[in-house]
Computed example of a mutant assay.
Amino acid sequence: MVRRTALHRLRQDIADLHPGYAALVMATGIVSTGLELFGLHALSTVLLVVAIVALAALVVAYTWRAVRYPRRVIADVRDPARGFGYFTLVAAPNVVGVRLAEDHPLVCLVLGLATVPVWLVVTYVVPGSMVIGRRQAPVLPRTDGSWFMWVVGTQSLAATAATVAAAEPSLAASLAPWAVAFWGMAVVLYLMLIGLVTVRLLESPVAPHALSPTYWVYMGATAISVLAAAKILALSPTLPVLLATREVVSGLAFVLWAFGTWWIPLLLAFAVRRHLVDREHVGYEPALWSMVFPLGMYAAASATYGRTSGLAFMVDIARVEVWFGFAAWVVVAIAMGRSFLPRRGRPVPASSTHMVG
């Protein structure tokens, strides 16, 4: 009886699994990368193992869900508040791959290639279904920070292409143009989306629950753009695509870093309004990983770009920021673990499998 109940609960969890739950892997992988950049090898390795295990488990879970519950997957794709979460399935393997690239560049390449078909499907099907599909309600009122996962997923491919190109010089001439192309596409997407999402925030009153942690991806999208740019700038400057674009990539990367830094106080103000002013009580919600990821990515990006460009102050900022990312990871990991524990007289809430967007 207990086994049957556990199996039923597992099936329900898979059916309810949010498209953006792979942000757990993204957050864990990038905090591991940040710790590794500052020589904290043991701690970084522990988080890397957690990220790999979580990635494997989620790949199985999402595959099971697609086969067993295809209608739910299709409904997610058509939902503006959930569909862009599928880009975490692009970013998560690439974040792990970039972390592994120094010792295992082939693994990084394989993970990157495996995510290209996913990116192609999601990048055209999700926004395409909103434009040409049958809409039961307007789309723009349902925009939120999760839309920036489109940028994050695209930049993760740029970072992977540049990382492998640096590790395997024989592939540099082939991969460098792809790295710059994905980077450029993602920057344009960011400029487009920031207008749409900001208009959504300004157009009508925003309820406290709408200021979810996914809005931290506002900043996370700029941070991963800076990281991908730093990876590109580390390539040989004699490559034709670098001769044509190096100054643009470097300059825009710094502008994006500055803009992402400007966003941090405003995002903190969102949190203050939600939790201290409006006093909305929030326990564990998987969307919290969408806050941890930008914190970790900001540290990794600042350190990598700072070292590549000779801007020591950015490295100094990252040296402190990496601990904020790690502390946030620990807090959310503990909250997640507690959410899985049965409450006295009650089963684990179904919301433990949901990601608020």
Rank of each mutant, 00 (worst) to 15 (best):
S146A: 15
V197T: 15
R99Q: 11
W329N: 11
I74M: 04
V77T: 03
M355V: 08
I14L: 10
A327R: 13
A244V: 07
G20Y: 01
W289I: 01
T5A: 11
S250W: 05
H354W: 06
A328C: 03
G83M: 02
T308G: 05
P177V: 01
S351Q: 15
W64E: 07
M291C: 13
D103E: 07
E321A: 15
L191E: 11
H104L: 06
G220E: 08
L24P: 03
P19Q: 02
A186L: 00
I264Y: 10
M219W: 01
A253V: 03
T63D: 02
I224W: 05
L37P: 10
P208M: 09
L106D: 06
N94P: 01
R307F: 00
T214G: 08
G83D: 04
F148C: 12
F326H: 10
W183N: 03
L196A: 14
A176K: 10
R82M: 02
V122H: 01
P105D: 02
P70L: 00
S352F: 00
A61D: 12
L288H: 15
A328F: 07
V206P: 12
A172L: 13
A22Q: 01
T353F: 03
H41C: 04
L7M: 12
W329E: 12
P347W: 01
A172P: 13
I30G: 11
A66T: 15
A221V: 08
M219C: 09
V98N: 12
F84Y: 11
V277S: 14
A91D: 06
I30N: 08
R274V: 00
P169D: 10
R142M: 13
L113G: 08
A101C: 02
W178N: 10
V241Q: 03
A230Q: 10
T88W: 01
Y21F: 01
S302I: 00
Y190I: 00
V46I: 12
L288Q: 15
E102G: 04
A300G: 12
V152M: 09
A172W: 09
R82Y: 01
A312N: 12
A318G: 14
V59S: 09
R274M: 05
